[in-house]
């Protein structure tokens, strides 16, 4: 099927996916060098989901992210340098260094936040949907979560409410096949996760999460429906987490090299890159130029993050409460 998008839109999708990939590779490197402390959950391999889905919503729409939230943050308008500063715990980061990887978000851009507790943002997204309904606007909220979250109680409570009250929330499962080490097969009685919507009369759809255009199309339909008061949709984007759950995860104990290679061959960036050339949208040279820009941008972000100051210790308890 030919592209519906303009060249500019298509190149922007590629650029965002590249930004996430380069960013995550930099994060992986900084973790290895012990410059980034703590846990960082990287999004390599899943780029098409955040980029494709968020590309069809407006700036005044909301998203909620996951504990693997770097990609959503970037796609919702985040800049690499403030993101990397956040991961390094610096004052210039989006959350002034208090959140780090698991709470990364630019809340001023409608990103209601990444969360360290799997599934716990699903009711929050549902609440954003209820606020939209009360205000009577045509905004929507995209609610991202992993396959593991569909086994949590709040997933079910929230989908029930959203369907009952026709809330403008699009629930997007990033099914990367594993909740940390436990496979979907071993964790969920229902293997095709989009079918879990049927218990709440929510239409569900399986989407190729390695294809940015497929994610975009499925999200677009769901968003259009939600804006018109048609209620929620459950999308299951099938994707893969290239790295382990976190850096300390050996991955070989619960999955095979063959499986990893299968998914890497379906890489969302490489396949989109090839398609852009095959369909005559851009030349290899043009795309290389974009990649070089992204590489440069990532290096600048690293410099910015490393040179930024840490937050002053006097601010330890600032912003715990709103103080008048």
């Amino acid at each position: 099927m030919p592209f519906k998008e303009t060249k500019e839109e298509l190149l922007s999708l590629l650029k965002q996916m590249l930004e996430i990939r380069y960013f995550e590779e930099k994060v992986w490197e900084l973790l290895a060098r012990n410059i980034i402390k703590g846990a960082s959950h990287v999004y390599m391999g899943e780029e098409a989901v955040a980029v494709g889905a968020i590309s069809v919503i407006r700036e005044d729409d909301y998203i909620t992210s996951t504990h693997r939230g770097h990609g959503h943050c970037l796609a919702k308008g985040g800049k690499l340098k403030y993101m990397l500063a956040e991961l390094c715990g610096k004052a210039t980061g989006y959350c002034k260094g208090r959140g780090g990887s698991m709470h990364i978000a630019d809340v001023t851009k409608g990103n209601l936040g990444a969360t360290g507790i799997v599934a716990s943002n699903i009711p929050v997204a549902t609440g954003a949907g209820y606020a939209i309904k009360l205000r009577g606007t045509d905004q929507v909220c995209l609610c991202f979560f992993g396959d593991g979250a569909t086994n949590n109680g709040v997933f079910h409570e929230s989908l029930n409410m959203a369907s009952l009250w026709k809330l403008p929330v699009i629930y997007i499962i990033e099914n990367n096949l594993y909740g940390m080490s436990v496979s979907v097969e071993r964790a969920s009685a229902v293997q095709e996760l989009y079918k879990k919507g049927c218990a709440y009369n929510i239409p569900g759809e399986a989407v190729d999460g390695m294809d940015v255009i497929a994610v975009r199309e499925a999200t677009r339909k769901a968003v259009e429906k939600a804006r018109k008061g048609g209620g929620p949709t459950l999308l299951e984007c099938r994707t893969y987490r290239y790295q382990g759950h976190s850096r300390s995860d050996p991955r070989g104990v619960y999955r095979t090299k063959e499986e990893e290679n299968y998914w890497r061959k379906r890489d969302p960036i490489q396949s989109f890159w090839k398609r852009l050339i095959a369909e005559g949208v851009a030349t290899e040279e043009e795309l290389r130029k974009i990649e070089e820009e992204v590489e440069e941008e990532t290096n600048e972000a690293e410099k910015f993050a490393l040179e930024s100051p840490y937050p002053p210790v006097e601010e330890l308890d600032k912003d715990v409460y709103v103080v008048k």
Binding site: Y130, E157, S158
Partner: peptide, 28 residues
């Protein structure tokens, strides 16, 4: 009915929905 809303028996989602609505400009 929208401003005084009967909910299902779903305490986690009640509190979470209020949190999300508050975060996006309401006062639940």
């Amino acid at each position: 009915e929208d401003r005084v809303k009967d909910t299902p028996i779903s305490e986690a989602a009640i509190a979470g929905l209020a949190t999300g609505a508050a975060l996006t400009g309401m006062r639940p």
